[in-house]
Design a binder for these strands. Structure first.
Lengths: 193, 193
DNA sequence: GGATCGATGTCAGCGACTGACATCAACGGT
DNA sequence: ACCGTTGATGTCAGTCGCTGACATCGATCC
């Protein structure tokens, strides 16, 4: 048995989410989170860069798995299909944590600072996907456009999935939303209608 | 003549941008900005919600003019073309403040907190465009997808425009980028390649 | 068994931000 | 011309996010 209770980081994450749900993000102090986890404020900031980051610890792993999925797509696939495969992989991960993802989303969407952090995580994911596309020979601006468009689709799909009462799979909503983006952008390069 | 020097808000914006350029955003304190503007820290926070917002004061006006441009598009136009018209209007506004826009962009892109704020402003713009699309009868998720895709195009186009040495018009880069998005998403709804 | 290490605690301090109250020129009504 | 109100600003005290420096002490390695 160690000198301290194990899993300090996990206890902080759990305590933070509980408190953010109970009284809201702004009304919660870092000292309170640390106290509920039986730690000190200083230790909180050794594990997480700031008060928001405690809710976004899994985002690097999600990005890694999306990028790996993109790298695994056959070279013959189009950029947008490669991005779609990566997003469906990410969707599958969130699907497995469905209850947690929804609770977390409720907290994040209730606060502007947390939404900002979410957006920069998505932008970082887009940059990672664009870089992976360039590795497979896609040029600019096609790589960035495919990645950013994919993230746009993912944002819309996630919002629908969270709001829906039924039990469709997130990956399915992503596929459907991508199809609707294709419909809305149209294929021709100069046309209207 | 008033009791105080006029245009306190403008002086604060000017002083802030100068200092952010001179020593960087993080190394600048609000007290220093206020002092350069011959005001107090407290007054700074009466004009701007936080230290970042002083760089984003024009974003509401930009959104308003984009939304108005969208509302003015003939009803026959497709959603994506309506969004394109709105973005070209916004592009024209930035084109007129080209030197300022580039200096400001250098400051914002050098700091993560400022990038977060920029992203949420763009997300707010997307929401405003989506709402305007819904007013013209576009359903969901088409409205959100068209708006988010438009913002994705705008982000990529703006980055290219800022990075380019030549003097192309931003609106032209936006149009070109939208064409490239169309090319990259493809028109068919299920196909690859 | 002693040196080292790593996770945590303690403490002092800065800077962002806020609420409460004071100030005082300008303005409008009488 | 006087006076009450208004609104932008100043002053001050205080909370909270976040950081650097140093102390603690079980675990681990030689």
């Amino acid at each position: 048995m160690g000198r301290w209770e194990p899993n300090a980081r996990g206890r902080l994450q759990e305590a933070a989410l509980e408190l953010y749900v109970e009284r809201g993000y702004e009304q919660t102090t870092v000292a309170e989170i640390a106290r509920r986890a039986a730690l000190t404020e200083r230790t909180f900031f050794r594990h997480f860069a700031d008060k928001r980051e405690v809710l976004f610890a899994g985002s690097e792993a999600l990005q890694e798995c999306a990028v790996e999925a993109l790298d695994a797509v056959p070279a013959a696939a189009s950029p947008i299909d490669a991005v779609a495969a990566a997003l469906e992989e990410a969707a599958a991960v969130l699907q497995d944590r469905r209850a947690y993802a929804r609770k977390r989303h409720a907290v994040v969407s209730a606060n502007a600072e947390l939404r900002e952090r979410e957006l920069i995580k998505l932008a970082t994911l887009a940059a990672g996907l664009a870089e992976a596309l360039r590795r497979r020979g896609v040029g600019e601006p096609a790589a960035s456009l495919a990645a950013e468009a994919g993230i746009a689709v993912f944002k819309v799909a996630f919002a629908r999935w969270v709001g829906e009462a039924d039990e469709r799979e997130l990956a399915e909503v992503v596929r459907e939303s991508l199809g609707e983006l294709r419909a809305v952008t149209g294929g021709a390069s100069g046309g209207s209608r």
